[in-house]
Design a protein around this nucleic acid. Structure first.
Lengths: 380, 380
DNA sequence: ATGAAAGCGCTAACAC
DNA sequence: GTGTTAGCGCTTTCAT
């Protein structure tokens, strides 16, 4: 109970008692107890308070008790900013998504946040609206806030900035990051698997004319989904006329526009696969407006399996990409990059699977009945 | 170009040149340029750098130029944590919502974030999942992160904590905060207006049996909406049998369950008002499963007007509560509480209006045709 | 085991 | 107008 008062100002030669407590410093944060208040109350040094609060085992149990009591009494909350300043680590993670209003992302955000918080991290969220400029300013702001790492769940960012960060050794996690960039951890989504299942499901029902509503093609992930579709079709020997391939922008509006384009064709495909669920919902809506029935007239398949999908009318058949899985991988990858002794510190790739979920927006092509049904009908 | 080196360690008596630049301190943040690096590069003191960077007009233009050049060269980003530490303000706002996966909230979050960022604030987002414990830990975490204020867009929080914060003078903004708490800024939503419009719209169409699917009744806002409905019905002299009032929990699942309950009644109401759009979507789904047609068999009205509402099948008639308006008010109210010289520093209430948006989920009650239609039919 | 003191990066009061 | 310096709240040597 001696030196603590020296930490303050030049001031009087005789720092008698608790002058510190309500501070001489004008900028002192109002109404907030600091470590010094606790130290004074407990009659120990601030170092001991720090140690007690951080659970360092070498503190005398009796002193620890006194410290905790004082903490209680003054309502002390350690100031994370100060901690971050001295430790050089903020225990904040950045999470950048393309469009927070696309329901897939809130689901992702929630999972990510739960995991992060459980592991002692806070999350700074940013939504880019597909704007590279926004993405850049977002990353810049997050860096200023000293986040320990950033997970970018979208693409369209200036490579320069990424390169600079990578050079600096800043932990970065991308989904579907394409190119040669080293030292970036990447979540590789296996689009092929789920999309092949979807195409095969449609083909098995008898569909041969299958259209595709893609996402915005400057997004790597959108391109990857389209390519997976093309590949699956080719594997089955199915043709894709150019006009059956339309861009939908991953929004409901985009889905509507794309479906209208398809519907204007002389021969509307009997089934349409969409690059995400929002486009699929848009497609559903467009078909409703043009009085086409789903799935009787045309089958629709989505991608993502957002919560909403099962509540659509009709419930949407879709390719599931688990945002839980994505979140787990993202947090894991981030920590691998941040914490020097992380068991996966050297791992650079995380695999994410996708799979088909069959609901009621897919059925036999219009005007056809499969053999089994015909046989059943004949029996009557 | 002299004293800056003194800031470091005891060390050598002769701090010849740029020993500081890559630091002697072991905890120095790796790869990140600090204000001292800029000062060294520009040949000025750190104070000048600080002033230049913060746009203080009294700096010599020539020096300012040199500073900015150095900033460019070393890739300097001011450390927000340090700034926050010294200024006692973090320029971070907390935003607490009840359920990030309810599409209304991402829309709100996005608006809020855009506004906040434009005004130089960062946003820390938290989702409570209606859990008071989570809410409390959320607020606690936000306080540790030194947020300048918190907007709570949900209710169910322990009053103790709120009281403590209020006593401390901590800026807090609530939506629909009910009780006597002083020094809390509140966003008063005028549910009555929009809901009265909805009930009158239904009544005008000829509905007399109008059901209501409420939200979770521990939420003030849910109670307020139900009460507004009851009041509007009373004003029109319409009766509400108890079984026409069911709780839906503000989720799709809840909406489905509630609608099923209603559908199981001997006399299903001809119209149902829902406490939010998600319940309404659930109701739509439940009616689809029970092969009731909307709006032919029963009219449905939602609340919130989320983006999705217009894309439902059929497009949802709903009471609009503009999240843009809410966000604007929330940020405004927060800043009023934070900034001592804010023009509205003394204002404690913000009004938010609601209004009906008519789409296609409402129509005449089943089995009825209004006079005009009958006359038109008779003419043929 | 405990305390003193340095210092994280920055701002602002003060001196010149 | 510019530099020096104290200090924001905290962690972490280094002595004791």
């Amino acid at each position: 109970m001696s030196g603590a008062e020296k930490n303050r100002k030049k001031s009087t030669i005789h720092p008698t008692v608790n002058v510190r407590s309500k501070s001489s410093h004008p900028r002192r944060r109002a109404g907030h107890a600091s470590i010094r208040d606790v130290a004074a109350k407990a009659g120990v040094s601030i170092a001991t308070v720090s140690r007690a609060v951080n659970g360092i085992p070498t503190v005398d149990p009796e002193l620890a008790r006194r410290v905790w009591k004082a903490v209680e009494e003054v309502g002390y909350l350690p100031n994370t900013q100060a901690r971050a300043l001295v430790s050089g680590r903020s225990r904040m993670l950045g999470l950048i998504v393309s469009e927070i209003t696309n329901p897939f992302f809130p689901e992702l955000v929630q999972e990510f946040e739960n995991l992060a918080v459980a592991q002692g991290y806070e999350v700074l969220i940013g939504s880019t609206s597909y704007d590279p400029l926004r993405t850049e300013s977002l990353i810049r702001r997050m860096l200023q806030r000293n986040v320990d790492g950033v997970a970018v769940m979208t693409f369209g960012i200036e490579e320069d900035l990424v390169q600079k960060l990578v050079d600096r050794g800043f932990p970065l996690v991308f989904v579907d990051a394409g190119p040669q960039l080293e030292n970036i951890r990447v979540l590789k989504v296996n689009y092929g698997e789920g999309i092949r299942q979807a195409v095969q499901h449609l083909a098995a029902l008898g569909h041969r004319e299958i259209g595709f509503i893609s996402g915005p093609l400057r997004l790597r992930s959108a391109v990857a989904r389209r390519d997976a579709f093309l590949k699956a079709m080719r594997e089955l020997g199915l043709k894709i006329p150019k006009q059956h391939l339309v861009e939908g922008g991953h929004t409901m509006e985009g889905g509507i526009a794309a479906m209208e384009q398809l519907a204007a064709l002389s021969a509307l495909p009997t089934a349409v696969l969409c690059s995400n669920d929002m486009s699929a919902i848009g497609a559903l809506h467009a078909l409703y407006r043009t009085t086409h029935k789903v799935p009787d007239d045309v089958s629709i398949v989505g991608f993502d399996d957002i919560h909403l999908a099962q509540f659509m009318l009709p419930p949407l058949t879709t390719v599931q990409m688990s945002c839980k899985e994505l979140a787990v991988a993202a947090v894991d990858a981030l920590r691998a990059g941040i914490e020097p002794n992380h068991p996966k510190a050297r791992q650079m790739e995380w695999q994410i699977d996708t799979r088909l979920v069959v609901r009621q927006s897919t059925a036999f092509p219009r005007g056809t009945l499969p053999a089994v049904v015909k046989r059943a009908a004949a029996k009557r």
